[in-house]
Amino acid sequence: MTSPTDDRTVADFYDFEAALSDEERQLLLRTRTFMREEVRPLVNENWAEGTFPRELIAKFRKSGLVGLPYEGYGDHRPGVSHLLTGMMAMEMSRVDASVATFFGVHNGLAMYAIHAGGSQEQRDRWLPAMATMDTIGAFALTEPLDGSDVTAGMRTTAAREGDTWVLDGAKRWIGNATFADHVVVWARDVADDQVKGFVVERGTPGFVTEKIANKTSLRIVENADITLTGVRVPEADRLQEAGSFRDVAEVLRATRSGVAWQALGVMTGAYELALAYATERQQFGKPLAGFQLVQDLLVKSLGNITASWGMLSQLARLQDSGVFRDEQSSLAKAFVTSRMREVVGWAREIFGGNGIVLDYDVARFFADAEAIYSFEGTREMNTLIVGKAITGQSAFV
């Protein structure tokens, strides 16, 4: 079973791509071609082995896709819209959510944290090499005992000693951390109790990463446990414009919408596989697609995809207009990931027994959806953010 290879997304039933400029359309097609030709042949073997194909980094360097949102760095194009970067995230996840997550952690979380929270000197020091993937970034916020409540419960500490900071604590589920050159670590300043950001270089004494094994979702992503024991970071490597958790929230607000686009990509990929399979697979003397119950699953899937695409397209316009709010990002993440969960389940159902083996791809989409459903804010936490915005009442514990 192979993925669709057209120069269009067959799930784009309302032609949302038409909103892109000609140049943006070419960049989207470049993304689609890159994922189909360079990534697709590698994913099932690496997913089964739980390894990240490091050779992709060199291919990404030549792709012309890294650093697009960051003026002055990498492959930046003036006027590139959030709609394009969202659709690029969708295209990547349409082929493989793990590789899309690797890209999102590096090009989104890590680079954006430095771009938004660093001084001009720091941006000029780190971002050029990151924008060409000569160096790789990671973003360390979540902790072993604190996920959703990391705002109040952060246990990783930073203590200043002259021109040096000493970091102690632990982080968990940190994508790219096993091989990243720069890890943005968030820690609580023991002096003022504020969360601050630090760029920790690979090989710094006391900074230890261990790959998390036995995952059943996003197996290509090399998530790591990080232990920080007396890690000494110079003041010059503290993000100078990131002095509180509000600055962390700004990064998450900007990147949470990207996760919703990933969810759209996962359900799109699963739907397209199911549609192709239903057209080809014969049962009772005719294609599966000729049965009413199968058509019902396909149409419900397309409805979820179309509704999610419409929501995310408008969200991208709000981002471009500068009136984008936290609760809008949270609603998109909660809604789209929930619809994704439905679609991958229906797609796997259409495949029957073949839907549980990697050979037909849909099993990978089905499993990977679970991680995307949870990270960058669970459905419950994003629901509470939206609930507070529309009622004026906080229901957080």
Rank of each mutant, 00 (worst) to 15 (best):
L293T: 12
F335C: 03
D237R: 10
V10T: 13
S98D: 12
G86S: 05
A289P: 02
I136G: 04
T178V: 13
V248C: 03
L56V: 03
A334H: 02
A263T: 09
T157P: 12
R348I: 00
F102C: 09
M88W: 05
G353Q: 12
W186I: 05
T209L: 02
V184Y: 06
A140C: 09
A11Y: 10
S119H: 04
G175S: 14
S313F: 04
V166F: 07
L68H: 05
S313P: 00
M35D: 06
G345V: 11
S81Q: 00
T85G: 07
V10W: 00
G64K: 07
E71D: 11
T209N: 00
W165K: 09
A347T: 01
A347D: 04
E376G: 01
A334T: 03
R61Y: 00
G269W: 08
T209F: 02
F335R: 12
V195D: 03
M92V: 06
D15T: 01
E161H: 15
D149Y: 08
F13G: 00
G147I: 10
D361Q: 12
N382S: 12
V221L: 04
E327N: 06
A110W: 11
S63V: 06
M90Y: 01
L298A: 03
A177L: 05
L29F: 05
D146H: 14
D192F: 08
A48N: 10
E241A: 10
Q282G: 01
I350L: 01
G50Q: 01
R364T: 11
M133I: 05
A389T: 09
R94I: 03
V39C: 09
M35I: 09
L141E: 07
F103R: 09
A191V: 15
L68A: 04
L318Y: 08
T383Y: 13
A395R: 15
